[in-house]
Simulated assay, not measured.
Amino acid sequence: MRVLLASPRGFCAGVNMAIEALELAIESLPGPIYVYHEIVHNKYVVDRFRSQGVVFVDSLTDVPEGSTLLFSAHGVSPEVRQLARGRNLRTIDATCPLVTKVHLEAIKYANLGYTIFLIGHEGHDEVIGTMGEAPEAIILVESPDDVAQLDVADESKVAYLTQTTLSVDDANRIISRIRERFPQVVSPPKDDICYATQNRQEAVSVLASSVDLTLVLGSQNSSNSQRLAELSRERGVTAHLIDGAQDIDPAWFEHVETVLVTAGASAPEVVVEAVLDFLREHFHATVEVHSLRTEDVSFPLPRELRVVSS
Protein backbone atom coordinates (compact mmCIF):
# COMPACT_ATOMS: atom_id res chain seq x y z
CA MET A 1 0.00 0.00 0.00
CA ARG A 2 1.10 3.56 -0.78
CA VAL A 3 0.13 6.29 1.69
CA LEU A 4 0.11 9.98 0.77
CA LEU A 5 0.50 11.95 4.00
CA ALA A 6 -0.89 15.45 3.57
CA SER A 7 0.99 18.46 4.87
CA PRO A 8 -0.04 20.75 6.42
CA ARG A 9 -2.37 18.73 8.65
CA GLY A 10 -3.42 18.59 12.28
CA PHE A 11 -3.10 21.29 14.90
CA CYS A 12 -3.44 24.91 13.81
CA ALA A 13 -2.01 27.88 15.71
CA GLY A 14 -5.27 28.53 17.58
CA VAL A 15 -5.52 24.93 18.80
CA ASN A 16 -1.85 24.92 19.81
CA MET A 17 -2.38 28.09 21.82
CA ALA A 18 -5.51 26.80 23.57
CA ILE A 19 -3.91 23.47 24.49
CA GLU A 20 -0.73 25.13 25.72
CA ALA A 21 -2.85 27.52 27.80
CA LEU A 22 -4.73 24.67 29.46
CA GLU A 23 -1.52 22.74 30.11
CA LEU A 24 0.04 25.80 31.75
CA ALA A 25 -3.09 26.42 33.84
CA ILE A 26 -2.96 22.83 35.12
CA GLU A 27 0.71 23.20 36.05
CA SER A 28 0.57 26.63 37.67
CA LEU A 29 -2.90 27.21 39.13
CA PRO A 30 -4.84 25.43 41.90
CA GLY A 31 -7.24 22.87 40.53
CA PRO A 32 -9.54 21.71 39.37
CA ILE A 33 -9.44 23.77 36.18
CA TYR A 34 -12.85 24.13 34.52
CA VAL A 35 -13.29 24.56 30.75
CA TYR A 36 -16.45 25.94 29.15
CA HIS A 37 -17.32 23.36 26.47
CA GLU A 38 -14.59 21.22 24.95
CA ILE A 39 -11.19 22.91 24.72
CA VAL A 40 -11.15 21.80 21.06
CA HIS A 41 -13.44 19.39 19.25
CA ASN A 42 -11.30 16.29 19.57
CA LYS A 43 -12.05 13.22 21.70
CA TYR A 44 -8.40 12.24 22.25
CA VAL A 45 -7.47 15.73 23.48
CA VAL A 46 -10.53 16.08 25.72
CA ASP A 47 -10.09 12.60 27.24
CA ARG A 48 -6.40 13.30 27.95
CA PHE A 49 -7.20 16.50 29.82
CA ARG A 50 -10.11 14.88 31.65
CA SER A 51 -7.69 12.22 32.92
CA GLN A 52 -5.59 15.08 34.35
CA GLY A 53 -8.50 16.38 36.38
CA VAL A 54 -9.87 19.03 34.02
CA VAL A 55 -13.64 19.45 34.26
CA PHE A 56 -15.51 20.32 31.07
CA VAL A 57 -18.86 22.04 31.58
CA ASP A 58 -21.70 23.26 29.38
CA SER A 59 -23.20 25.54 32.04
CA LEU A 60 -21.47 28.00 34.35
CA THR A 61 -23.79 26.89 37.16
CA ASP A 62 -21.60 23.75 37.27
CA VAL A 63 -18.54 25.85 38.13
CA PRO A 64 -18.10 26.64 41.85
CA GLU A 65 -17.81 30.34 42.61
CA GLY A 66 -14.23 31.59 42.68
CA SER A 67 -12.90 28.74 40.51
CA THR A 68 -10.66 29.00 37.45
CA LEU A 69 -12.52 28.78 34.13
CA LEU A 70 -10.93 28.62 30.70
CA PHE A 71 -12.88 29.68 27.62
CA SER A 72 -12.24 27.29 24.72
CA ALA A 73 -10.73 28.07 21.32
CA HIS A 74 -14.23 28.52 19.84
CA GLY A 75 -15.01 31.64 21.83
CA VAL A 76 -18.01 32.65 23.95
CA SER A 77 -20.72 35.28 23.96
CA PRO A 78 -20.72 38.44 26.12
CA GLU A 79 -23.51 36.86 28.18
CA VAL A 80 -21.20 34.01 29.23
CA ARG A 81 -18.46 36.46 30.19
CA GLN A 82 -20.94 38.42 32.29
CA LEU A 83 -22.14 35.24 34.04
CA ALA A 84 -18.52 34.34 34.80
CA ARG A 85 -17.93 37.75 36.39
CA GLY A 86 -21.10 37.34 38.42
CA ARG A 87 -19.79 34.06 39.83
CA ASN A 88 -16.41 35.63 40.64
CA LEU A 89 -14.61 33.18 38.36
CA ARG A 90 -10.96 33.55 37.43
CA THR A 91 -11.26 33.39 33.63
CA ILE A 92 -8.63 32.55 31.05
CA ASP A 93 -9.61 33.44 27.49
CA ALA A 94 -8.16 30.90 25.04
CA THR A 95 -10.36 32.03 22.15
CA CYS A 96 -8.57 31.70 18.82
CA PRO A 97 -7.62 35.21 17.61
CA LEU A 98 -9.18 34.41 14.23
CA VAL A 99 -12.51 33.78 15.98
CA THR A 100 -12.08 36.99 17.97
CA LYS A 101 -11.63 38.77 14.63
CA VAL A 102 -15.10 37.61 13.55
CA HIS A 103 -16.59 38.73 16.88
CA LEU A 104 -15.09 42.20 16.45
CA GLU A 105 -16.42 42.41 12.89
CA ALA A 106 -19.89 41.50 14.14
CA ILE A 107 -19.75 44.25 16.76
CA LYS A 108 -18.50 46.79 14.19
CA TYR A 109 -21.19 46.08 11.60
CA ALA A 110 -23.94 45.95 14.23
CA ASN A 111 -22.88 49.33 15.63
CA LEU A 112 -23.04 50.75 12.09
CA GLY A 113 -26.64 49.58 11.75
CA TYR A 114 -26.04 46.68 9.36
CA THR A 115 -27.97 43.43 9.22
CA ILE A 116 -25.33 40.69 9.36
CA PHE A 117 -25.64 37.35 7.57
CA LEU A 118 -23.51 34.84 9.49
CA ILE A 119 -22.66 31.87 7.27
CA GLY A 120 -22.24 28.85 9.52
CA HIS A 121 -23.73 25.81 11.22
CA GLU A 122 -26.50 26.16 13.78
CA GLY A 123 -25.47 24.96 17.23
CA HIS A 124 -21.72 25.13 16.63
CA ASP A 125 -19.93 26.68 19.62
CA GLU A 126 -18.27 29.31 17.45
CA VAL A 127 -21.56 30.37 15.85
CA ILE A 128 -23.30 30.61 19.24
CA GLY A 129 -20.52 32.86 20.54
CA THR A 130 -20.48 35.12 17.48
CA MET A 131 -24.27 35.51 17.37
CA GLY A 132 -24.20 36.43 21.04
CA GLU A 133 -22.23 39.59 20.21
CA ALA A 134 -25.21 41.16 18.40
CA PRO A 135 -28.20 38.79 18.44
CA GLU A 136 -30.62 41.46 17.24
CA ALA A 137 -28.52 42.16 14.12
CA ILE A 138 -27.36 38.68 13.03
CA ILE A 139 -29.20 36.16 10.84
CA LEU A 140 -27.73 32.67 10.47
CA VAL A 141 -27.41 31.39 6.88
CA GLU A 142 -26.63 27.69 6.51
CA SER A 143 -27.19 27.03 2.81
CA PRO A 144 -27.68 28.79 -0.54
CA ASP A 145 -31.41 28.02 -0.30
CA ASP A 146 -31.64 30.07 2.91
CA VAL A 147 -30.72 33.22 1.00
CA ALA A 148 -34.08 33.34 -0.79
CA GLN A 149 -35.84 33.54 2.58
CA LEU A 150 -33.82 36.46 3.92
CA ASP A 151 -35.90 39.48 4.82
CA VAL A 152 -34.19 42.69 5.94
CA ALA A 153 -35.43 46.20 6.60
CA ASP A 154 -32.72 47.93 4.55
CA GLU A 155 -31.13 45.93 1.73
CA SER A 156 -28.50 48.63 1.26
CA LYS A 157 -27.06 47.97 4.72
CA VAL A 158 -26.19 44.26 4.84
CA ALA A 159 -22.91 42.47 5.55
CA TYR A 160 -21.79 38.88 5.76
CA LEU A 161 -19.38 37.01 8.02
CA THR A 162 -18.44 33.35 8.10
CA GLN A 163 -17.66 30.69 10.65
CA THR A 164 -13.89 30.11 10.50
CA THR A 165 -14.04 26.33 9.92
CA LEU A 166 -16.37 26.12 6.93
CA SER A 167 -15.77 24.46 3.60
CA VAL A 168 -14.39 27.17 1.34
CA ASP A 169 -16.44 25.83 -1.58
CA ASP A 170 -19.68 25.74 0.44
CA ALA A 171 -19.11 29.23 1.80
CA ASN A 172 -18.39 30.60 -1.67
CA ARG A 173 -21.63 29.13 -3.02
CA ILE A 174 -23.60 30.89 -0.29
CA ILE A 175 -21.65 34.13 -0.72
CA SER A 176 -22.34 34.10 -4.47
CA ARG A 177 -26.06 33.74 -3.81
CA ILE A 178 -25.97 36.57 -1.25
CA ARG A 179 -24.13 38.86 -3.70
CA GLU A 180 -26.72 38.11 -6.40
CA ARG A 181 -29.62 39.00 -4.13
CA PHE A 182 -27.91 41.86 -2.25
CA PRO A 183 -25.48 43.57 -4.66
CA GLN A 184 -24.54 46.17 -2.03
CA VAL A 185 -23.51 43.60 0.59
CA VAL A 186 -20.23 44.35 2.34
CA SER A 187 -17.71 41.99 3.88
CA PRO A 188 -14.45 42.14 5.85
CA PRO A 189 -11.33 42.95 3.82
CA LYS A 190 -9.88 39.54 4.72
CA ASP A 191 -11.64 36.16 4.62
CA ASP A 192 -13.00 34.84 7.91
CA ILE A 193 -12.29 31.19 7.06
CA CYS A 194 -8.99 30.53 8.78
CA TYR A 195 -5.72 29.89 6.98
CA ALA A 196 -5.38 26.37 8.46
CA THR A 197 -8.86 25.33 7.38
CA GLN A 198 -8.14 26.54 3.84
CA ASN A 199 -4.72 24.87 3.69
CA ARG A 200 -6.02 21.49 4.83
CA GLN A 201 -8.90 21.67 2.38
CA GLU A 202 -6.54 22.59 -0.44
CA ALA A 203 -4.36 19.54 0.30
CA VAL A 204 -7.35 17.18 0.10
CA SER A 205 -8.59 18.87 -3.08
CA VAL A 206 -5.21 18.42 -4.76
CA LEU A 207 -4.30 14.94 -3.50
CA ALA A 208 -7.66 13.11 -3.48
CA SER A 209 -7.53 12.57 -7.26
CA SER A 210 -4.43 10.39 -6.77
CA VAL A 211 -5.85 7.96 -4.19
CA ASP A 212 -8.45 5.23 -3.74
CA LEU A 213 -9.42 6.08 -0.15
CA THR A 214 -9.06 8.98 2.30
CA LEU A 215 -8.64 8.73 6.06
CA VAL A 216 -9.30 11.95 7.99
CA LEU A 217 -8.19 12.06 11.62
CA GLY A 218 -10.69 14.06 13.63
CA SER A 219 -13.79 13.77 15.79
CA GLN A 220 -17.36 13.71 14.51
CA ASN A 221 -18.14 17.07 16.12
CA SER A 222 -15.18 18.77 14.44
CA SER A 223 -16.58 20.98 11.69
CA ASN A 224 -13.31 21.42 9.81
CA SER A 225 -12.60 17.66 9.93
CA GLN A 226 -16.06 16.87 8.56
CA ARG A 227 -15.37 19.27 5.67
CA LEU A 228 -12.17 17.39 4.75
CA ALA A 229 -14.06 14.09 4.47
CA GLU A 230 -16.80 15.78 2.43
CA LEU A 231 -14.25 17.27 0.03
CA SER A 232 -12.84 13.83 -0.71
CA ARG A 233 -16.30 12.35 -1.27
CA GLU A 234 -17.21 15.23 -3.59
CA ARG A 235 -14.25 14.15 -5.71
CA GLY A 236 -15.53 10.58 -5.89
CA VAL A 237 -13.14 9.17 -3.30
CA THR A 238 -14.50 7.31 -0.26
CA ALA A 239 -13.50 8.99 3.01
CA HIS A 240 -13.69 7.91 6.64
CA LEU A 241 -13.55 10.35 9.54
CA ILE A 242 -11.94 8.55 12.49
CA ASP A 243 -10.64 9.40 15.95
CA GLY A 244 -7.76 6.96 15.68
CA ALA A 245 -6.46 3.59 14.54
CA GLN A 246 -8.97 1.81 16.79
CA ASP A 247 -11.75 2.95 14.44
CA ILE A 248 -10.25 1.42 11.30
CA ASP A 249 -12.04 -1.47 9.60
CA PRO A 250 -9.55 -3.54 7.55
CA ALA A 251 -12.39 -4.32 5.11
CA TRP A 252 -12.18 -0.70 3.90
CA PHE A 253 -8.93 -1.48 2.11
CA GLU A 254 -10.05 -4.26 -0.21
CA HIS A 255 -8.80 -3.34 -3.72
CA VAL A 256 -7.23 -0.16 -2.28
CA GLU A 257 -3.67 0.59 -3.37
CA THR A 258 -3.24 4.27 -2.44
CA VAL A 259 -4.54 6.03 0.68
CA LEU A 260 -4.57 9.71 1.59
CA VAL A 261 -4.09 10.44 5.30
CA THR A 262 -4.79 13.90 6.73
CA ALA A 263 -5.98 15.41 9.99
CA GLY A 264 -8.33 18.19 10.99
CA ALA A 265 -7.04 21.27 12.78
CA SER A 266 -7.91 19.88 16.23
CA ALA A 267 -6.42 16.37 15.77
CA PRO A 268 -3.03 15.70 17.42
CA GLU A 269 -0.11 14.20 15.51
CA VAL A 270 0.06 11.23 17.89
CA VAL A 271 -3.19 9.82 16.45
CA VAL A 272 -1.86 10.30 12.91
CA GLU A 273 1.29 8.36 13.77
CA ALA A 274 -0.77 5.54 15.28
CA VAL A 275 -2.77 5.23 12.04
CA LEU A 276 0.42 5.17 9.95
CA ASP A 277 1.82 2.44 12.21
CA PHE A 278 -1.40 0.45 11.73
CA LEU A 279 -1.16 0.73 7.94
CA ARG A 280 2.52 -0.24 7.96
CA GLU A 281 1.85 -3.26 10.16
CA HIS A 282 -1.23 -4.56 8.38
CA PHE A 283 -0.60 -3.51 4.77
CA HIS A 284 3.18 -2.98 4.54
CA ALA A 285 2.44 0.65 3.72
CA THR A 286 5.08 3.07 2.50
CA VAL A 287 4.46 6.68 3.51
CA GLU A 288 5.15 9.69 1.29
CA VAL A 289 4.78 13.21 2.71
CA HIS A 290 3.16 15.61 0.25
CA SER A 291 3.69 19.18 1.43
CA LEU A 292 1.66 21.87 -0.31
CA ARG A 293 2.30 24.81 2.00
CA THR A 294 4.44 25.80 4.95
CA GLU A 295 2.72 27.12 8.07
CA ASP A 296 4.63 29.31 10.52
CA VAL A 297 1.74 31.02 12.30
CA SER A 298 1.73 31.20 16.10
CA PHE A 299 -0.44 33.01 18.62
CA PRO A 300 0.57 34.32 22.06
CA LEU A 301 -0.77 32.76 25.23
CA PRO A 302 -3.83 34.40 26.81
CA ARG A 303 -2.74 37.51 28.69
CA GLU A 304 -3.94 35.96 31.97
CA LEU A 305 -1.16 33.34 31.64
CA ARG A 306 1.71 35.39 30.20
CA VAL A 307 3.05 36.38 33.63
CA VAL A 308 2.90 32.73 34.75
CA SER A 309 4.84 31.55 31.67
CA SER A 310 7.56 34.23 31.81
Rank of each mutant, 00 (worst) to 15 (best):
G264Y: 02
V186E: 12
H282L: 05
V45H: 08
Q184V: 01
R177D: 08
A267G: 13
A285T: 11
V275D: 00
G66Y: 03
C12W: 12
E254W: 02
P97D: 09
T115D: 12
F11S: 07
D145Q: 15
K190E: 15
H290Y: 09
I193K: 08
T130S: 03
P78M: 10
E180H: 08
D243M: 01
S209W: 00
P300R: 06
R303Q: 13
L228I: 10
D58H: 13
V168F: 03
V80A: 06
S28K: 15
S298Y: 09
V275Y: 00
Y36G: 09
L5K: 06
L150C: 10
S77P: 10
T214I: 05
E257Y: 01
V102P: 11
L292M: 13
I178Q: 02
V216N: 14
V57E: 07
S225Q: 07
L217D: 04
A84M: 04
D249S: 11
A171E: 04
R85P: 02
D169Y: 13
E180R: 05
C96K: 06
I193F: 06
I26D: 02
A265I: 08
P32H: 01
P189L: 11
E23A: 15
A73D: 05
S219Q: 13
S223F: 09
T165D: 02
P30E: 06
P188N: 03
P78D: 05
N111M: 04
G10D: 08
A73Y: 12
D146W: 02
P268Y: 03
V272S: 10
F253D: 04
Y34S: 01
A229K: 11
V57L: 11
L279Y: 05
D170L: 07
L215S: 03
E234G: 02
G66I: 02
T164D: 07
V55C: 14
N111A: 13
P250Q: 10
T68E: 01
F182H: 11
F253T: 04
D62W: 00
I178N: 01
L29Y: 06
I92R: 06
E27H: 00
A208Y: 11
S205L: 14
V287E: 13
P268Q: 11
V206Y: 02
Y160F: 15
V259E: 05
E155V: 07
A229R: 06
T238W: 01
F182D: 08
E133K: 14
T165Y: 07
L207C: 08
V102D: 10
V270Q: 10
R179E: 15
V308E: 03
